[in-house]
């Protein structure tokens, strides 16, 4: 275990009562329990209230563009697959603007951990709907209620090949720490959707709302059964929220399948110098 305080950056500017506080604390505790230091990991942040954690958390980091944290993280991992790479993004960032990247990162089983702050609303732009907002949710951008149905991030990730799919609740820090740790330890693409009340712009999906509708998966739950997992994830559509590791299997990661990386990371490899071998393509 390393020192949690080493990860302390600036004092957060999140609203009092925001779920981000719980997630921010859980991340730092998980990192320190895993023995990480700010120098031994890379965290890639999206844009949003969650992404603002870039200044509150000490680590090698990229504060990316909106929606683009996942491809940045994939690039870091390809270059140096020995570094743990964690994405911290919001629902708008990861399921809206960058939705395509999520699908393909899952397909590729890229060994990165995606932590999604799912508050079902855009906080930083002061209250417009997110892709996870419930149908009919009234917001500044949908004054008569959103027409679309919400995206189901867990089903989406699962069906696109994610090998670790989990859900946590920002109000339960201890449980969230455990889930984050297991997600990071998982070899392959892992996603943790964290239900997070926005106390300022979402008066529907409150702490109370979630406490009434969430439950933890029991010890006998079989996380390696795809069919059961699919069913579990679809409970979200009926406003039931399972917490825990919904699905986990071990499959070769993207970098494990790159023979170039058998011996070294890309950063460590020797420069290729046998150019004569390449010339033969051109004579």
């Amino acid at each position: 275990m390393s020192n949690i305080r080493d990860f302390d950056g600036y004092k957060p500017t999140w609203c009092p009562g925001c779920g981000d506080w719980g997630i921010g604390a859980a991340l730092k505790i998980a990192f320190s329990q895993l023995g990480f230091t700010p120098s031994s990991i890379v965290v890639v942040f999206g844009i949003g209230c969650s992404g603002n954690m870039n200044d509150f958390l000490n680590a090698y980091a990229v504060h990316s563009l909106h929606g683009r944290a996942i491809p940045n993280a994939i690039g870091v991992k390809l270059a140096n697959h020995k570094l743990p790479v964690i994405v911290v993004a919001g629902d708008g960032d990861c399921y809206g603007e960058g939705g395509n990247h999520l699908i393909h990162a899952a397909r590729g089983n890229h060994d990165i951990t995606v932590i999604v702050h799912d508050n079902r609303v855009y906080g930083l732009t002061t209250g417009q709907v997110a892709p996870t907002a419930q149908k009919g949710f009234k917001s500044k951008s949908t004054p008569v209620g959103i027409i679309e149905s919400p995206i189901n991030p867990l089903s989406l990730a699962l069906t696109q090949g994610a090998t670790f799919v989990a859900q946590a609740f920002a109000g339960d820090t201890l449980h969230t720490i455990e889930i984050i740790k297991k997600a990071i330890e998982h070899k392959g693409f892992s996603i943790v959707n964290i239900l997070q009340p926005c106390v300022t712009f979402n008066k529907v999906n409150t702490y109370d709302y979630y406490l009434k509708r969430l439950y933890k998966l029991t010890a006998d739950y079989q996380a390696d059964n795809y069919q059961i997992a699919i069913k579990k994830t679809t409970e979200m559509n009926e406003e039931k929220f399972p917490l825990g590791i919904i699905y986990q299997v071990r499959r070769p990661t993207y970098t494990e399948q790159l023979t170039q990386l058998n011996k070294n990371t890309l950063t460590e490899k020797e420069r290729y110098l046998d150019f004569n071998l390449l010339f033969s393509d051109f004579v």
């Binding site: 390809l78 270059a79 699908i103």
Partner: peptide
């Protein structure tokens, strides 16, 4: 030993490269 990634779109293309470049 070069790694070539055919990514899902050009936005992912450049951001993958930027991630790798950042990493060294």
């Amino acid at each position: 030993g070069i790694i070539v990634r055919h990514a899902e779109d050009e936005i992912s293309v450049i951001n993958t490269a930027l991630g790798a470049s950042f990493a060294g």
